[in-house]
Amino acid sequence: MRPFRTGQALLPAAFWALFALMIVLFDENPGWVDSTRAYLGAILPLLGGILGAYAVLDDPALEILFSTPVPAWRLLAGRLIPPLAVLAAAAVSFQLFLAALGFDLDILGGVYSLQWTWLVPTLALTGWGAAIALAARHCAGGAMAVGAVWLIQLIARGWFLSQKNGGVFLLFLGIFNPEDARLTANRVFLSVSAVLLLTAAVALFKRQERFL
């Protein structure tokens, strides 16, 4: 739906290389576990949010695109799917890289469970970034909102975990606390949030004149 912008792949690729290098250089256990958790569970969602904030409005041909008979949801999907595909490729290739080095991913909760830990928070922050950028009509505003939520949750992770229902709202619960009893509720909350935020983004994107 939109010619791919190579810029969308540069940031994920740079972080991929950085974390791969860290694991190769400091490959003692549990160093690789912490690095992998940080990359998959924290960095990828952050990148998803930032790329989601910039994917929609950072487009010089927006007015011409608005004149085409493409519904808002398809235009939005055409902008959000490429960065999400890049992040998915980064996540999968990173795990393949670890497997090739001989690390056992079962330590991180198994291959299936591991996909939830990056995918759900990444979708939630992508929706958050896109919705705020569209509401504010400002890409940087969306990216700052993403950064704020990410940083607050990272710094106050202990506080969230100590509250009765706090863990439900924690982006990083799946990756850092895979045994937590609130994990299912957390996944449901993040998935529903992602759907609601992306729906809100579509509704905002329908008001095309706001973005000209």
Partner: peptide, 10 residues
């Protein structure tokens, strides 16, 4: 449109 925006790298 009056303010024509295109993709420079295409």
């Amino acid at each position: 449109p009056q303010e024509l925006g295109l993709y420079p790298d295409l």
